[in-house]
Amino acid sequence: MNESDPKDILRFYLQNARDALLWKLDGLPEYDIRRPLTPTGTNLLGLVKHVASVELGYLGDTFGRPSGEALPWVAEGAEANADMWATADEPREEIVGLYRRAWAHADATIDALPLDTVGTVPWWPKGRDDVTLHHAAVRVIADTHRHAGHADILRELMDGAVGMNQGNDSMPPGGTAYWTGHRDRLERAARDAGEKYGG
């Protein structure tokens, strides 16, 4: 990464988030990448489908650079939250492939346009729908990192896998016994605080 090039910095952090999110699917069967693990239905493959749509929208359509990808789940009249889960007829490979094509399209937009280029976000209210490429890229980075964090928690709940990628878990050393003891200690502290401060 060229630290004096703002576009390199943006691409670096965006790609880190993309890679972290996709890694969360590795080694999991179809059921696990699709199953809802929160009361609102958050699931791993749905997160990938969502961020692909976000990239194509903010770093494509917004700047007059449509990708040509069909995204019926975000079209007018689509079911609410249709971009946040994958139907049984949407293969993993199809959604991951869409996400990789979205990366290429978004990166091409960042490469082609100056960061102060102004675009129009089609789904924002009129009069407040202008955005610079720099702003849109930062927004996509923030959104992708947020969802990579969601994915990190979902994956940990499934099989204990944590971290940015296979070679970088960003965790202090400790085996199963350490983490069980650590969690128990936090549980005791939470109960003690609940008794001490109420609630």
Rank of each mutant, 00 (worst) to 15 (best):
H134F: 04
G181R: 09
I153A: 11
T87V: 03
G149L: 12
P114S: 08
A80W: 06
H145A: 13
T180M: 10
V138W: 15
M84G: 02
D116M: 04
R185N: 01
G160P: 09
G149N: 12
D143M: 08
V162M: 08
G174C: 13
N165H: 09
D111G: 13
W179H: 11
W123Q: 10
T176S: 14
T176Q: 15
R100V: 00
R128C: 01
D152K: 07
G174N: 12
Q166L: 09
T132S: 15
R146H: 15
D143H: 14
W123Y: 14
L115T: 05
R101P: 02
R155L: 12
G97F: 03
H150A: 05
R92N: 11
A148Q: 08
W103G: 01
E93G: 03
D152G: 05
Y99K: 00
L113Q: 10
W124Q: 10
R139S: 05
T176A: 14
D111P: 14
D83P: 01
D169C: 03
P114M: 02
R92P: 11
G175Q: 05
G167W: 10
T109V: 15
P114N: 03
V118C: 09
G127Q: 06
H150G: 01
N165I: 03
W123E: 11
D143K: 09
T120S: 13
H182P: 01
A151N: 05
G174I: 13
I141F: 10
A161I: 07
E79W: 02
P172L: 09
H150T: 04
V96Q: 04
W124D: 10
A161F: 04
H105W: 07
E79I: 01
D83M: 05
P91S: 14
D89K: 09
A86I: 07
V131H: 13
Q166I: 03
T120A: 05
V131Y: 11
P114Y: 07
G97S: 04
W85Y: 14
D107E: 03
G175L: 02
V131N: 10
H134G: 13
Y99E: 00
G175N: 14
V138F: 15
H150F: 13
G175A: 12
E79V: 01
A86L: 03
W85N: 08
P91Q: 13
D159G: 03
